[in-house]
Nucleic acid binder design. Structure first.
Length: 547
RNA sequence: GGGCUGGUAGCUCAGUUAGGCAGAGCGUCUGGCUUUUAACCAGACGGUCGGGGGUUCAAGUCCCUCCCAGCCCGCCA
């Protein structure tokens, strides 16, 4: 993704106020005079499903990364999978390698249950495709990032421990354990004089343990006992094994691990959700500054969005994945969604996706200077090049709902003709532009089907149930005769009006009768032209209400 | 109970930094395109900017207070 700097975007920069939030964050990062490459991180713990909510972590950082790249910096965007964390409870839903969401019943749940307490990287992939549960999850996220055109480097925490990347951090924290305890105890009441900020992996049962009995800094090892671990209301049994672990055979508690990642990776910026704003961030910042003695990254808190008015929840099934979204809209529309102000809690209402797409189209027109809205135009001038891969003027965007209407037929020529009739294409519109514009039809069609809304027109193969007045029936018979004589769609359309007038029936009632017969609905596409495209015998029989 | 972030038209949202006429799109309604629906054109309707108070010549914007929502304030991440 490359982006040219719009030439008319200047004055705002002088006084520290920008039209695109990513510029504000970029300013803050630049103000610290960071080493190149600038590192922007995101991260999650592998859970059951990689859903769209996780993409805040990736997309928010992405826009900042792109802004910095445009300003001439080298930027490395990384995403850590916190995959040395133990599996604490069984997920209720999982996503398979294609992003389809499946219940636990469809995988070997028993195998998962036996692995409670073990690091995600030590648990087999429930789908048997990749090396581990963690690898499965990471590959889903990576694939989704690719789909959205975001170059992000996936990093495994487990590997970072194995490589020894964390050795200096673990060593430093254990060396300064008094300070570490003191700082963290401000945030966690559990921290006392016995607290050891290191959790070894039990060499016997493979679970993460919490009881360290001795530290040997010279040898770089700790002694531990594999005791029970309390997780919420449940207890994960320890095996009682007493052993020795190196700094690579365990992990830091997350409150230390997060700042540890900042240190190891040299993180300059990290966006995080509102849940971290009050708990983890203050402690992470404090630990970074006063235990690790590093500068914490520039933070950015983003609001969560809701889906169809409810919080995202994989257990409640209220989630959507990137592949699912990309069946309904273009990647750039999804990118646009994440380019909007992160501080606003938004609702992603799938029933009103047309609204989101309309907003995007308007945003795009604003970039091209075609919208009389100063605020929107300023935002679009700056942000659009980061949202759309390939900035061009010749694109034609069919309104989403109109594209949905075109989706009632699979006949591409009919789609083109209808779009032409509505003025979206003219005689000079190049074929590839038309083809590109029509790509939206499949998306909008999926949406209409999935939502089963008013745009979900289906030609009825069987004669629907109906109840017409005698004069309407007579008018339908007349119209049938007209069609039987052989006329094109435009003529049929005209004749519908003529017939209705002749029989002195309400235009709306007559159209409603037509939509009932062909779509079993009260509305539909422009009827005459549509009938003109269907097989004549079929239309005649249907108008005569014959099976 | 304390803290953080939000609350602007029926819906989705700009505008809040740095006080200066309450805005857009969609929806709705009316009319138009000598043709219903979709689209398009014109117009209209639509507001206690969450409530109240304060500062100011002037407040959606600043201050105080209250209400509502989400999150954090055990553990974990």
């Amino acid at each position: 993704m490359s982006a040219e700097a719009p030439s008319d975007e200047t004055d705002a920069q002088d006084d520290g106020f920008h039209d695109f939030w990513a510029d504000d964050v970029a300013d803050e990062i630049e103000a610290r005079d960071p080493d190149e490459p600038i590192v922007i991180k995101g991260g999650v713990s592998p859970s059951g499903v990689a859903h769209l909510g996780n993409f805040n972590e990736i997309m928010r950082g992405y826009f900042v990364a792109e802004v910095l790249r445009e300003r001439g910096h080298e930027v490395r965007q990384v995403f850590t999978s916190d995959d040395k964390d133990p599996l604490r409870k069984l997920p209720r839903k999982l996503a398979d390698e294609d992003g389809n969401i499946v219940g636990l019943g469809e995988v070997d749940a028993g195998a998962l249950g036996r692995n409670l307490g073990k690091p995600y990287t030590a648990i087999p992939d429930p789908f048997g495709e990749t090396d581990s549960y963690a690898a499965h999850f990471a590959s889903l996220l990576k694939a989704d990032a690719d789909r959205l055109g975001v170059p992000v480097e996936m990093l495994s925490n487990t590997e970072m421990y194995e490589n020894g990347d964390f050795d200096p951090v673990v060593e430093h924290v254990l060396e300064n354990i008094e300070t570490a305890r003191e700082v963290l105890s401000e945030y966690q009441s559990k921290v006392d004089d016995d607290y050891v900020p290191f959790n070894p992996v039990c060499s016997e049962c493979g679970k993460i343990t919490e009881t360290v009995t001795d530290i040997d800094l010279d040898a770089g090892t700790v002694e531990y006992v594999c005791t029970d671990m309390t997780v919420g209301d449940n207890t994960i049994d320890g095996c009682g094994h007493e052993g020795t672990a190196t700094f690579r055979e365990g992990k830091l508690p997350w409150r230390f691990e997060w700042p540890g990642q900042w240190q190891v990776l040299g993180v300059d910026h990290e966006p995080f959700g509102k849940d971290h704003a009050e708990g983890s961030w203050p402690s992470g910042k404090d630990i970074a500054e006063n235990v690790l003695e590093i500068e914490p990254p520039v933070p950015m808190v983003y609001e969560w969005f809701t889906l169809n008015g409810e919080a995202l929840s994989s257990s409640a099934g209220n989630i959507v994945t990137v592949p699912e979204m990309l069946e309904l809209l273009e990647p750039e529309v999804l990118r646009y969604f994440f380019a909007l102000n992160p501080r606003k809690a938004r609702d992603l209402d799938l029933t009103r996706l047309d609204q989101l797409v309309d907003d995007f189209d308007r945003f795009e027109r604003a970039y091209h200077g075609e919208v009389d809205d100063e605020n929107l135009t300023r935002f679009a001038k700056r942000a659009y090049p980061f949202v759309v891969d390939d900035v061009r003027e010749d694109r034609i965007r069919l309104p989403y709902t109109f594209a949905a209407v075109l989706g009632m037929t699979d006949d591409e020529d009919l789609r083109i003709k209808m779009a032409r009739n509505e003025g979206f294409f003219d005689e000079d519109t190049p074929e590839d532009v038309i083809d590109e514009a029509l790509e939206r039809v499949e998306l909008a069609r999926h949406w209409a089907e999935k939502m089963d809304n008013q745009y979900n027109y289906r030609l009825q193969v069987e004669l629907p149930a109906f109840d017409f007045d005698a004069d309407i029936e007579a008018a339908l018979d007349d119209l049938a005769d007209f069609v039987a004589d052989g006329h094109d769609g435009e003529e049929i359309q005209g004749e519908i009006y003529e017939t209705a007038r002749r029989h002195d029936i309400e235009m709306g009632d007559f159209f409603a009768a037509g939509y009932r017969l062909f779509f079993d609905d009260t509305q539909g596409p422009r009827l005459g032209e549509f009938l003109g495209e269907l097989e004549q015998d079929f239309v005649v029989k249907r108008l005569r209400r014959e099976d």
